[in-house]
Nucleic acid binder design. Structure first.
Length: 422
RNA sequence: GUGAUCGUAGCUCAGUUGGUUAGAGCGCCUGACUGUGACUCAGGAGGUCGCCGGUUCGACCCCGGUCGGUCACCCCA
């Protein structure tokens, strides 16, 4: 019966069997991250609001209108984390982790954003992400992109693709900004309201506009590539060279600029058509200025965040989950006496032999108990009824082969059961 | 935040120009099968028709509000 309460808008319960897919993905992610030398970091779910205002950028949509912010009982301004990068950097600085040299960290957990929910977009979402600190060279860019791509490939997702761009650095981006302003300003009045607003605050974002009124002007805007400084151009070329070398496919999209203020140089996304309008499953890039802007030593860094819900959506669309292999035992007792005889055997199968073992404690008929065995995914059934009790035997049935054998109900029964597996 | 659309059993969905006991398939439970699971047949349980209010003699159906889902915009994971 439905209760009077429902999960808050934009949140969802992760119930079985979906929860099993989640933990399988999480296990795979952990193994992959460790393979690349990344160690896990866990940070608080809430932080002081100022951290995000400074770290993510005052003018971003996230900070302007999407944060879960409140004042706690001590009068502190608190925000549920809308992303991980700023908290990770804060923790890295607080723990002085950079003192030991370059640092590779990954994280996995929920984020919170107050948005209108739709497909692939939730108010509580989960992200896996990676941050690589201390390398300014293109190898680090390649490494994080390759890591994300490995996960996509591991799940055989075929319609995903990497979109790549360079948005310049602190030296050359101002030049591009100026060029854009020069291009758009004379025609500002013809732009959409949204683009007019963006023009003054962050002209790069005008390029993102999908408004038809802006299309012509956006198309004729100067290409960012033309104003990249030599350093940025060399860096971008080197990243592309590495991707080509490793055979990682990508497309360059000069209009992709990303909405977080801290990115410079390399930005990338992994997108998929099956996600609908929320086409991006993974987004990241280089943020060489962020550590210093949060009070740390100048430290180059690259990273990405990947949406678990969206990733699972892609997995579901590409490859229906294979039914798990059957394993373990279903103990089927007929009657109270058989039940009490079976309980210690089941316990021993679990404790001494590490086997999965299930048992129904109701007075159900054999047939019903077999159905339960199927539902539990058990490989074997152990049947004990009055006949067996009289003969001092236990029936062990292989539910896949449909073969049976009788084992003596004496001595270490669990040992005999396990022995019979071979 | 804007717009559109939807909300009936655990799941997928019928339903009525407003009329009294709300249906199907799947699933679940029980039985036909003397104690053996994915087949067959029969029976059964399970619904405040999202919630609140209004109109009406009468509302699952009409109207308003609200909550939630979905899709697009916006934004992003």
């Amino acid at each position: 019966m439905a209760s009077n309460f429902a999960a808050p808008r934009g949140t969802q319960d992760i119930l079985p069997p979906a929860s099993a897919q989640w933990s399988a993905l999480e296990a795979r992610i952990r193994a992959l991250a460790e393979q690349f030398g990344y160690a896990e970091i866990r940070t608080p779910i809430f932080e002081s609001t100022a951290l995000f205002a400074r770290g993510v950028g005052e003018a971003t949509d996230i900070v302007e209108k999407e944060m879960y912010t409140f004042v706690d009982r001590g009068g502190r301004e608190i925000t549920l984390r809308p992303e991980f990068t700023a908290p990770v950097v804060r923790a890295v600085l607080e723990g002085n982790l950079l003192a030991a040299g370059p640092l590779r960290l990954f994280y996995l957990g929920p984020i919170f954003r107050y948005e209108r929910p739709q497909k692939g977009r939730y108010r509580q979402a989960h992200q896996f992400g990676v941050e690589c600190f201390g390398f300014e060279g293109p190898e680090a860019d390649l490494e994080v992109i390759a890591l994300a791509w490995s996960l996509v490939r591991a799940y055989g997702i075929d319609d995903a693709r990497i979109v790549l761009n360079s948005i310049g650095d602190a030296a050359c981006r101002p030049r591009y900004r100026a060029a854009l302003l020069e291009h758009f300003r004379p025609h500002a009045a013809t732009l959409s309201e949204e683009s007019q607003r963006r023009l003054e605050r962050n002209p790069l974002r005008v390029l993102d506009s999908k408004d038809p009124r802006d299309a012509a002007l956006v198309a004729s805007a100067p290409a960012l590539e033309s104003t990249l400084c030599d350093g940025c151009r060399a860096h971008f070329d080197a990243v592309r060279g590495y991707l080509d070398l490793l055979g990682i496919p990508y497309v360059v999209d000069p209009s992709m600029v990303r909405g977080l203020d801290y990115y410079e140089r390399t930005v990338f996304e992994i997108t998929s058509g099956i996600l609908g309008a929320q086409s991006s499953v993974c987004g990241g890039g280089r943020y060489d200025g962020l550590v210093a802007s949060l009070g740390g030593p100048p430290t180059p860094a690259v990273g990405f965040a990947l949406g678990i819900e969206r990733f699972l959506l892609m997995v579901a669309a590409c490859a229906p989950p294979a039914p798990p292999a059957r394993s373990g035992y279903q103990a089927i007792a007929l009657g109270a006496q058989a039940r009490s005889r079976l309980v210690p055997i089941v316990a021993r199968l679990r404790d001494a032999y590490g086997r999965a073992a299930f048992m129904d404690y109701g007075d159900r008929r054999v047939k019903a108990q077999f159905k339960i065995a199927d539902r539990n995914g058990a490989r074997y059934a152990l049947i004990l009824g009055t006949d067996e009790l009289e003969r001092g035997e236990l029936v062990r049935r292989d539910l896949v082969d449909r073969t049976e054998q009788r084992l003596p109900l004496a001595g270490d029964v669990a040992a005999a059961i396990v022995e019979a597996e071979r």
